[in-house]
Write a protein that binds this DNA or RNA. Structure first.
Lengths: 198, 198
DNA sequence: TATAAAACAGACAGGTCTGTATATTTGTCA
DNA sequence: TGACAAATATACAGACCTGTCTGTTTTATA
């Protein structure tokens, strides 16, 4: 039951992601979605609201995709953590989200265009990243790893570094570099921290 | 001996960095630099050329700043490598470049707005990142660390992750997280690789 | 089938954008 | 001082942008 609103947000997300927010005009979104202008302004007060809706959709889609990839890889929490990186590589290679290739992280891009920390899009980007850290924390705790919040921050930082590297330098293999690093850091955390739970 | 061209590029860099490339109109650059429009188009064919000139200036400035920070920290190559992270933190706190606070990495931002890998601005961003990896490689080699290119890629990835995290989530302390990780990874490289040169 | 809500097409207002044209002023150097 | 180059102010063309208005057609529901 796809509503016109859904068509609009879907098309907006695609164009914003590929071409950027400021560079994408409303008219193009309307043309590609086949929706009339008045319908847009019946559902959204402004282009900014459409941007926020698109980012909210992206947050949901991306986290669901990532979590599904990680959960299908294994039942072991530590292996799940490490499976984040092969998942990222399939994304970097453009195989993760149909229709959108890989144009970096939509939220890093949004923070770049909307530099002001107080801008709603920037805030939404920060929330997205925090939610992912929370998920990683949970997995670290499930894995019985010491200092799970700290380790989750480390793994999240590796993820951000891999994304930026893969995008700016066109280096999808950054995912494998990050994975190697993650293995070392996890082992170091184990060695340093208390004994694993088993 | 500051030319009008320099005024222009300087002002352009500042405004592009703070407000973004597409969001910054030429008129504003002209107003804030006090230069006439015809003068701009005498020095540059188009806004795109001005963008490239601004990014080239940024590349030079940023790398000179980073290398100077790292070289003044110590004469020991390994300590120099690690000093990248405190330097990054001063940048994240807005204390590095007068007039520009911290709005993330200008090149990550450029790659975000100009998503096409073939776009000159995107290519310039990739070159900037590669130059930094080259510098880190050199330091790794000087430090007698095993597999210096590989380790340089790891440290560069930590740098990108710290930048993205600091900007999107407003977390300057990401620099310290990255530094801790760097220490662990360097030790692991030493342990794994051949014996250090001394 | 009757009615109401939703989406449609298309014009338009008002602003901003890049880039150009013209004519005037400033600055430099001989 | 005279001549030449550089920079200036100002106006403007043409495109594009967001958002609004009007009136028609489609769609869903009762």
């Amino acid at each position: 039951m796809k509503s016109r609103r859904d068509d609009l947000v879907e098309t907006a997300l695609k164009l914003f992601y590929i071409h950027g927010f400021n560079a994408t005009g409303i008219d193009r979104i309307l043309a590609e979605s086949g929706v009339a202008k008045m319908t847009l302004y019946k559902h959204f007060r402004s282009k900014d609201e459409l941007i926020l809706a698109a980012l909210q959709l992206r947050d949901e889609r991306f986290r669901n995709w990532l979590m599904a990839e990680m959960e299908k890889s294994s039942t072991d929490p530590e292996e799940r953590l490490l499976s984040m990186f092969p998942a990222l590589e399939t994304w970097f290679l453009g195989k993760a989200f149909k229709g959108l290739g890989f144009s970096g992280c939509a939220f890093i891009n949004a923070a770049g265009e909307f530099g002001d920390q107080a801008h709603p899009a920037h805030r939404l980007a920060a929330e997205h990243k925090r939610r992912i850290v929370d998920y990683l924390s949970e997995l670290c705790r499930d894995a019985g790893l010491p200092d799970p919040e700290d380790l989750a921050e480390q793994l999240a930082l590796l993820k951000e570094g891999a994304i930026a590297t893969a995008h700016v330098r066109n280096m999808p293999e950054a995912a494998r570099t990050a994975e190697k690093m993650a293995r070392i850091l996890i082992e170091a955390a184990k060695a340093r921290g208390g004994q694993p739970k088993a």
